[in-house]
Write a protein that binds this DNA or RNA. Structure first.
Lengths: 169, 169
DNA sequence: CACGATTTAATTGCGCACAACTCAATGGCC
DNA sequence: GGCCATTGAGTTGTGCGCAATTAAATCGTG
């Protein structure tokens, strides 16, 4: 669990310890931001995995169902915009949801390019069983509402900044 | 068959501050925490992808090299503890790093079960070129040091709580 | 010493994420 | 109408993450 507390972190080969040591610290600090985020995301995924197993959903599949429960039938494009996912990810995922009987996919009559994704009766019914998921997740975090809100705001700002930076790259 | 909606589908709720939040809001709030984290993690990954392309590394490979640069030669097990990854992820990743000429893997003489991973000359040299990565990443976030630190603390606390919760599951 | 339990990597299988590509449908434009 | 760029899904290929399994080396205990 602890990337710190490395007993006698021996460095056999390289120890270019500059007195001011900005370089070394930078590589370490850098790891802290991105790695923390990476680790937190995977930890979250792990907790969801355990809870969603009862529903027969993976975490990304759960996200898709959340959007469908909230907005009803949607074309794949819109679904992707909500979740920031493209068809390369969604197409096989939706196929699995369809195979599980939770959604149906059908070409739009108005625009034959578009595929409408709609929850089946079974998919809609699953929503009832999903209602307890948020509570269990929130409990697992041990965070209060305010804390959650603050963290979310922080993360959203970060995402926006990163997206903007990616544009110019 | 006309597209139908179902109970609670199209409810725009801009006011989350109701005393007793109904179930609908719970499903929405829940999405906010985990989805924000998920999105931020992927956004980060995207920015790294662009920056690390010059070094010929993926983001997880970069994390591995960070650990090796810091600690020198390590067995796969220790590497996995630092990064919270198991051999199922690390083995193929290390093979690719070896194929790229950045690390070497050799069975420990003392314990034949263990495989020592050591950066090659080329791998060690890559560190110099990696020194600019943190700055570019930090710049992309638009965050100050303090902000980064606060966010990291928040995330680490979250990860610890989630890990603890996963234990009891 | 022998034998079973534990440790360490590697492998297999599945699902997600993303880039690059294909293909059909659509819309704009002359 | 005919042409062509654009749009929306799907497919392919690569890599990560994790569960489950396998195989070999090591350790512990009788």
């Amino acid at each position: 669990m602890a990337p710190e507390s490395y007993p006698g972190a021996m460095t056999p080969t390289p120890t270019p310890t500059t007195p001011a040591a900005p370089a070394d610290d930078w590589l370490r600090l850098d790891q802290q931001i991105c790695f923390s985020l990476h680790a937190a995301s995977r930890a979250f995924n792990g907790v969801y995995r355990g809870i969603l197993k009862d529903l027969g959903l993976t975490y990304p599949q759960y996200l898709v169902m959340l959007v469908l429960w909230e907005h009803g039938t949607l074309p794949v494009k819109k679904l992707g915009e909500h979740l920031r996912l493209d068809s390369g990810t969604l197409s096989p995922l939706l196929k699995r949801l369809e195979a599980a009987g939770l959604v149906r996919r059908e070409r739009s009559a108005r625009d034959e390019r578009s595929v409408e994704v709609r929850p089946t009766e079974e998919g809609a019914a699953l929503r009832e069983r999903a209602l307890e998921v948020p509570r269990r997740i929130t409990a697992a975090t041990g965070f209060g509402i305010d804390e959650v809100h603050a963290l979310r705001a922080h993360l959203d700002r970060l995402t926006a900044a990163l997206d903007a930076a990616a544009e110019n790259a």
